[in-house]
Write a protein that binds this DNA or RNA. Sequence first.
DNA 1: GCATTTCCTGAACAGTTGGTCAGGAAATTG
DNA 2: CAATTTCCTGACCAACTGTTCAGGAAATGC
Lengths: 228, 228
Amino acid sequence: MGMVSRQQDNMTSGTSGAGAIRTRNQSRILDAAEGVFAAHGYRGGSLSTIAQEAGLPRANLLYYFKSKRGLYVALLERTMMRWNQLLEEINVDDDPAQVLTSFIRAKLALVRRHPQASRLFAAEVLQGAPMLQVYLRGPVRDWVNARAAILTRWIERGQVDARVDPHALIFLIWSTTQHYADYEAQVLALTGRDALDDDDERRIGDFLCHMVLAGCGLTESEHTTDTL
Amino acid sequence: MGMVSRQQDNMTSGTSGAGAIRTRNQSRILDAAEGVFAAHGYRGGSLSTIAQEAGLPRANLLYYFKSKRGLYVALLERTMMRWNQLLEEINVDDDPAQVLTSFIRAKLALVRRHPQASRLFAAEVLQGAPMLQVYLRGPVRDWVNARAAILTRWIERGQVDARVDPHALIFLIWSTTQHYADYEAQVLALTGRDALDDDDERRIGDFLCHMVLAGCGLTESEHTTDTL
DNA sequence: GCATTTCCTGAACAGTTGGTCAGGAAATTG
DNA sequence: CAATTTCCTGACCAACTGTTCAGGAAATGC
């Protein structure tokens, strides 16, 4: 009992003071697990590898997380919580072009900043998203439906081209932006580069914004590059 | 020595006659391996599972393929060979709209017909594409560069909007089409469906064609739905 | 200071992993 | 037919898997 409440305290408390060790080691383990599970999937990632990556003995992982599965779901939860914080609200009366461009650029920056987290989800979904069903069928679905509803309203108002499928548009933005994190190895191999820099991100963002806005029948005057 | 030549004979020979057993069992094993590796990745997929799936004793897999890795690369090679057969050539003087729409619809049909193969590659690339580097940096890269060069010519001629990045456009088509195979679990969970039918494929194809053509500055008169 | 909780980990566990091998069945060949 | 190649597989192996646990170190509370 005492352990549980202590654990929750640490969720909110900082990195110093009582229980700081728990917080520090847990996140150190989660960081290592993120890389390993993202690279090899759930079954492919071993506790030994994660422990080695984290610089801790294997038995210590199982002190903080009662099982491999427990560690995995904790990792998924941490990642989902981080992503949730970045889901800004949008309004029906906002400017469609503005919303779409900022959405694209935000997603692009996000997956570039956290490519391992993106790959972690990708691997999970590839396997049929067994641990994410509740999350997907719940909050994420609501989030998507809310955006789709607003897109539908925009279409009814004539602000967005009627040939646009709201859900398909969201999937398009997701897939194209994530592509540069999840399939980075392919992109690099095909373009002959060895890394994607800020310039690439801006250039890709420009292109994606252009494609989406044109497809939505929106003019794209100053929305493309004046974000800085 | 005799085995090697026999093996190569079987590659070309049919499913009956001498060495038919080898051909039949090999492909049966590869079929099973495709599903297992696509679902769990290379490390996550076990020979026991594949053997069970193929209805053969585990030791038999290692009679035909000398190691797990050998089976895996054989599977990748078979899949790559199948895909290569579907890479049609295009010409600079072809109609851009026609080429793009047929490309999108072909890719969409392909990944829907072979979702496991698509996921297999996705899992490989997620892990950094260690076994695909040669393939990606060779033939695939040439293929992409050839298409990109034609797109560049079209842009120079003024047939395609100058804001289009050739490589990024190809990646966009790849990622959006593959999305419906690789992330099928997510798409289904978010849309509340339990399968994607022919109607969905056509609808998604319509949308993607519209987006791409609009982004390329191409009118899309009769290219969208009269494919039948 | 002492008592209690938290933290830590080497060692051992049963189960699974990829891989080997001997020995025999089945098929093909001449 | 007999000779030879191909096919097949149960049994075994060392290495690794996730997990348990006892017992002790370190930190915390009072």
